[in-house]
Design a protein around this nucleic acid. Structure first.
Lengths: 334, 334
DNA sequence: CTGAAAGCGCTTACAG
DNA sequence: CTGAAAGCGCTTACAG
């Protein structure tokens, strides 16, 4: 690979000027000199070494993203949106996939510190992730989920409790009086907010029988749990799911058991990725504004760090489709 | 961030020794000295700067991955498997998502060259991607799809033609005599092989009426195309899809149109990600051996570059589920 | 407008 | 076993 030194030699100038040309500054370069440099660079196929540049400049122009599971559609859409927003500002997004393994997550934290990413977007597997390495390295972090302890870590997310309430209330408005909740596997801040929203909505309807179950965030496990619960004679009339993935598992179980959705069992999801419109039947769900969140996050992370930390709430939508029941003008008892 | 110099000073030794300790070589270090270094490093919270290390060492211990769309489950599972295999060898996987945008793909090529990844795993949007920048930088590339021109670029993939033939033959064995093919959008080497395998299988059955359609690799678009085709009176009895995503779109269209799968329309997919087992009905599909391919790719890429290029074929499975028809012992006409 | 030189934080022959 | 020093390929005050 050609170096700036070689380009400079061929152009009959110095490495300083090569740098000025490729960075459009910080000094001006005479038009002819610039031309000569560009020509020499093209002839030698010069690609500035980003490592050396970063080492010298002190910034890598890269943002690290840590997600629990990149194969999960929600995180895939998130990564795509962040990548786009980052690229628009000349930044590279480095994706670290934890693969649902907390140790892997920690190793990504270490890797990102060592690679000196400028900032980090974190969706942790842990309720209270250890972000000390980032703090010590003065690397700003924005978490996209509720954190147990907010010690200086920025947070941008929807109001899970309010969203959970909205979905639950929609089920209640349909007239369903036995409702199961499929919540996430652990007692995390996130699942706690789901539960609080769910229970708050139900508290207005003391006659409603509700049960809370936990399942992993995967179709496979959710299906397994649902297969058991929905086969019982006292199966719930409606199921609130804390993720679309879990909802797909419940839909699968319904089909397996010959139960019709929404006629026998109503289902709502949560996250609202594009695929939720293509399930059978299409899924009623809470849509998270992924592009807006991504744009906002990258804006903050590439801007003045003095504006951080930040604790922001993004707006969500309840997207009503067919999995929860008829869309009557009057959403009364079916 | 503490530097090796500061650690050395605190430990009363030199940066060379700090390096020897953190790299376990290339020179030995006396046990007490090592202890002192480790203690000083811990006290100062030292994290070696990977950029400086890479600049000096000449290797970044990172592998670049370029995929067409990270939100597509197939590429998500691929990224997850590659990440795992890379991590097992102390390498970081950098994921570049092209977001179905060829320009973005090219910018990832440039970014990876500038960041001096040690090697690249490529799934291109183009039939004949421009990998010259990698060649010039002496960065080995393994493509995971058939390439139009094999000019020195390694390739590891299943035999698409044989797999397409297997799926098509399965449909024929069920007795279906009008079969539509949903192929990818472009005239790429990949879609050509799908078509060849499809047509070769059909050539043994001149009585079969087959039509080939093209759709993008997305549920949304495939559903749209299928909604049109399957609403016609002369709709096909079976649909061969060149990806699971397209198959999900076809399933959606069937449900929308009130057609039963497989009783009215049989469907097969291609790729065989985990989700194919949870569709309604579960999808008959060709399963690609993602973990094996990932393992093999990373093994080759982190090994001796003299072994490259390589042109390998991985084994596939035909996974028979319910979307194609009854699983009788005797797969005859239904 | 341009160049010589120091410095970013490591690694590694080379001496000792 | 250990250290002084050169070098990886850039950027950027500092002079001119």
């Amino acid at each position: 690979m050609a170096t700036a030194r070689e380009v400079a030699a061929r152009a009959g100038t110095s490495t300083a000027v090569v740098s000025y040309v490729f960075n459009d500054g910080p000094r001006n370069v005479a038009p002819e000199t610039r031309e000569k440099v560009l020509r020499a660079a093209a002839e030698l196929n010069y690609h500035p070494n980003a490592l050396a540049r970063a080492l010298s400049f002190g910034k890598t122009r890269s943002i690290g993203l840590i997600v629990p599971d990149i194969a999960n559609r929600f995180f895939g859409e998130l990564a795509r949106a962040l990548e786009e927003a980052a690229a628009a500002r000349g930044n590279l997004l480095l994706i670290g996939d934890s693969g649902l393994n907390p140790e892997r997550e920690q190793s990504h934290v270490a890797a990102f510190v060592q690679r000196r990413v400028d900032s980090v977007v974190l969706v942790s597997l842990a309720d209270d992730p250890d972000v000390a390495p980032f703090a010590e390295a003065a690397i700003p972090v924005i978490a996209l989920h509720p954190l147990a302890a907010r010690e200086g870590v920025s947070t941008i997310s929807i109001d899970y409790k309010a969203a959970a309430g909205a979905a639950t209330r929609h089920l209640l408005d349909h007239g369903y009086r036995t409702i199961a909740m499929f919540n996430g596997p652990s007692d995390s801040a996130g699942s706690r907010q789901h539960r609080e929203g769910f229970e708050l909505a139900l508290s207005e309807h003391p006659e409603v029988a509700a049960t809370i179950y936990n399942s992993q965030i995967s179709r496979a496990h959710s299906a397994q749990v649902a297969l058991d619960i929905l086969a019982r004679p006292d199966r719930p009339r409606a199921v609130y799911c804390s993720t679309d993935e879990q909802a797909y598992g419940v839909l699968f179980a319904c089909h397996r058991l010959g139960l019709r959705v929404p006629d026998d069992v109503a289902v709502t999801g949560f996250d609202g990725t594009e695929h939720s419109a293509y399930s059978y039947p299409p899924l009623t769900t809470i849509r998270q504004p992924i592009p807006e969140i991504a744009e906002r996050v990258v804006h903050l992370l590439t801007g003045d760090a003095a504006n951080l930390p930040v604790y922001e709430t993004a707006a969500f939508d309840l997207v009503v489709r067919e999995s929860c029941g008829q869309h009557d003008e009057s959403p009364a008892a079916p």
